[in-house]
Design a protein around this nucleic acid. Structure first.
Lengths: 191, 191
DNA sequence: CTGATTTCTTGAACTAGTTCAAGATTTTGA
DNA sequence: TCAAAATCTTGAACTAGTTCAAGAAATCAG
């Protein structure tokens, strides 16, 4: 069940079979159905979620324009609300399954114990976080230097899987514009 | 000279005096004058910069709208181009001093050696990166849920130091709009 | 298989923020 | 101390993307 996670970790740091065993004791595996929530606004986020099978989105409800999606995750991606996780404050965002999903949870309150037992996991997360930060900076770059149309084509080119699996109006939300606008872009392309 | 850095590290992990000595051997201290570059587009970014005294910006040249600033740093902030640093590819961005600046460099190629010598620094960077990622997610949130006007007031409220130290047109760039627009916002407030 | 729900499309009126251009003010370096 | 450079302001014309409204198409649960 945790094979995905073990392999993902091995891309960055060594991990023996004994260490796999230890890790497994610190991790909880869960299932959610499509549309169920891994985290709801108001709850304090308790951990980091690794998607084993399925697809999720993280979003907040903004009074102005309904839901604003800020992150997607599919197989082998981590997803969480760092704001809530770090500050121990109630989350302002929701994490929801877009398909029936199996995921692993690493709870915040056991994380340091795990790092003490398997020190190179501290390194693994350092590397993962650095990659996530790189991606976040790149995202800001694209938001500011590309038009909506360019951003849509760029995203569709970079993540064709998402365009398949996720409704277009959610991609519109993630990219920061309206579903109507995405429709108009596509209409243009056919012509 | 490295007192700032040592204290910053101690906010997150313990650090003995012997470890300070070791760390100091891995770090290089540099000075740049206002307007000089810590990193220029085209160079491969070689390390992570910690601002001891001064103020810098990171930006790329976009053909569409001139310079796009994606990060500022003042005393006790780290700044680098993770995209270039991580992929070992020529940077598309520039890091420039906005004041005469003293900074510490941790070079990529000695970083692992340092972590081996002082393991809790791996943890320090994990924590720092998590905070940076949180900030980056928050930034995307604000970009998408607030109007330009709200974003300006929010930024000015959260980072009054920057509004003092950095020209307004650079803040406009960082927030993703034009200097003219920021002028109009301020004109409105006075009225 | 079928009605209900979810997702996608289209068009017309609209607005937040841009662009261009020019002048005013502030800061800087020699 | 003063000219040059950098920064900030203002107004008028403009545009990328929104909003609203309504219908069409696709998907889903029972």
């Amino acid at each position: 069940m945790l094979t995905n996670l073990f392999e993902h970790i091995r891309k960055f740091v060594p991990l023996s079979e004994e260490e796999e065993q230890i890790l497994a004791q610190y991790i909880e595996i869960r299932d959610v159905k499509k549309k169920d929530h891994l985290l709801k606004a108001g709850q304090v986020c308790q951990g980091n979620y690794f998607i084993i099978k399925g697809c999720c989105r993280a979003y907040f409800d903004s009074e102005r324009d309904g839901e604003q999606i800020y992150h997607f995750a599919i197989e082998n991606w981590w997803i969480t609300d760092y704001i809530s996780l770090e500050a121990h404050t109630p989350s302002e965002s929701n994490i929801q399954a877009l398909e029936n999903t199996t995921y692993a949870v690493l709870y915040r309150d056991v994380q340091d114990g795990l790092f003490a037992a398997v020190p190179q996991l501290e390194r693994y997360f350092r590397i993962i976080l650095q990659k996530a930060l790189t991606a976040a900076q790149l995202r800001v770059k694209y938001i500011f230097t590309q038009t909506g149309e360019e951003r849509y084509h760029h995203f569709a080119g970079s993540f064709p899987d998402f365009v398949q699996r996720v409704p277009l109006y959610m991609i519109a939300s993630y990219l920061g514009f309206t579903p109507e606008f995405i429709s108009k872009i596509r209409a243009k392309k056919k012509a």
